[in-house]
């Protein structure tokens, strides 16, 4: 039960993007479509999972003062692994996510979970925490991507909703739509949080 709560907290109650306002750069930058949002979310989840696991294993071996630099090295290694693997096996997605893949390393969410959770808890809980937070992040990005794709291109995951119509309200695919869409999704999540609490 406790683990289940630990797992689901990232979905709504502590949603990393809409409630904690972490990782806003990739959330705004790559979500021009639902698919890109999903890809970025899963890439971040993988890094989070790897770093949380390793950090909770080595937490007792690392002297306190060099804790942060060690965590940074661990996170950066996982980011590079994702970067190389994606370039090899998903070159199209790699291209559309571009700069934001190496920038996972400065995503406050990843560092935040390593420092605030994994360095204080055992491996099991750290993995559950990473899964929950990662999926919450993925959910957030896919939703924002979905909203922008539906309004901006009248399609979802590349499937046209209105046959023959390809041009939607373009502003939602462009930069302003990202900010405005996120603003309204924050309102929605604040409402949901109040409802479920």
């Amino acid at each position: 039960m406790k683990q289940w709560k630990n797992f689901t907290k990232g979905f709504i109650k502590d949603n990393p993007v809409y409630i904690l306002l972490l990782g806003l750069c990739p959330a705004l930058g790559v979500t021009t479509s639902a698919f890109n949002g999903l890809g970025m979310g899963l890439a971040t989840t993988f890094v989070l999972l790897g770093s949380n696991t390793v950090v909770s294993i080595i937490k007792n071996l690392i002297p306190n003062k060099v804790r942060i630099p060690s965590f940074i090295v661990v996170i950066a290694s996982f980011v590079t692994i994702v970067q190389l693997t994606m370039e090899a096996y998903m070159p199209d997605l790699f291209e559309s996510l571009g700069l934001f893949i190496p920038l996972i390393v400065v995503n406050c969410l990843v560092m935040g979970r390593a420092e605030a959770f994994a360095s204080k808890n055992n491996i099991g809980s750290s993995i559950v925490d990473a899964m929950g937070m990662g999926l919450g992040f993925t959910l957030a990005l896919t939703m924002l991507g979905g909203v922008r794709e539906i309004l901006g291109a009248y399609s979802i995951f590349g499937i046209q909703l209105i046959p023959g119509v390809t041009d939607g309200m373009l502003v939602f695919v462009l930069a302003p739509g990202a900010f405005i869409g996120m603003g309204y999704l924050i309102i929605l999540f604040n409402y949901l949080k109040k409802k479920t609490a």
Binding site: I58, N60, L61, I62, P63, N64, K65, V66, P69, S70, V73, V74, A76, S77, K120
Partner: peptide, 22 residues
């Protein structure tokens, strides 16, 4: 939980090991 004490030697050593492994 007991945090490991930071001495110059173990700091250098653990940072070196972490970066080498990475």
């Amino acid at each position: 939980m007991a945090k490991k004490e930071s001495t110059f030697l173990n700091m250098v050593l653990s940072l070196f090991l972490v970066t080498a492994a990475a």
